[in-house]
């Protein structure tokens, strides 16, 4: 899918328990070009994931941990990460 010149695309990814609760793993959002840049916290609410981002959910932007309140650049990949349990 290619965004038209008048829109920008942001990809949202969910993992593990968050993915299963929401019933989806990835969404591509087309936003009108020139609209105020959304933050991850805005997208969390906009996508119906909840009113406010829970403290235990971490955010990554372009695969690096990031603030939930930073404006997202066009083309960004934002991921919501439930508590990590590796090793």
């Amino acid at each position: 899918m290619t965004a038209s010149v008048n829109t920008t695309v942001i990809t949202v990814r969910l993992f593990a328990a968050l993915k299963e609760q929401a019933g989806w793993a990835e969404r591509r959002l087309e936003l009108p070009a020139g609209a105020p840049a959304p933050t991850p916290a805005h997208l969390w609410r906009q996508l119906g994931l909840g009113e406010t981002l829970p403290a235990q959910v971490r955010v990554a932007v372009n695969q690096v941990f990031a603030s939930a309140h930073q404006p997202l650049a066009p083309g960004a990949e934002v991921a919501f990460l439930p508590p990590i349990s590796g090793g």
Partner: peptide, 14 residues
């Protein structure tokens, strides 16, 4: 490094 991996590297166990 092991402790950092367990808390800061994105893995999820089921």
């Amino acid at each position: 490094l092991l402790e950092a991996l367990k808390h800061e590297a994105p893995f999820w166990k089921r």
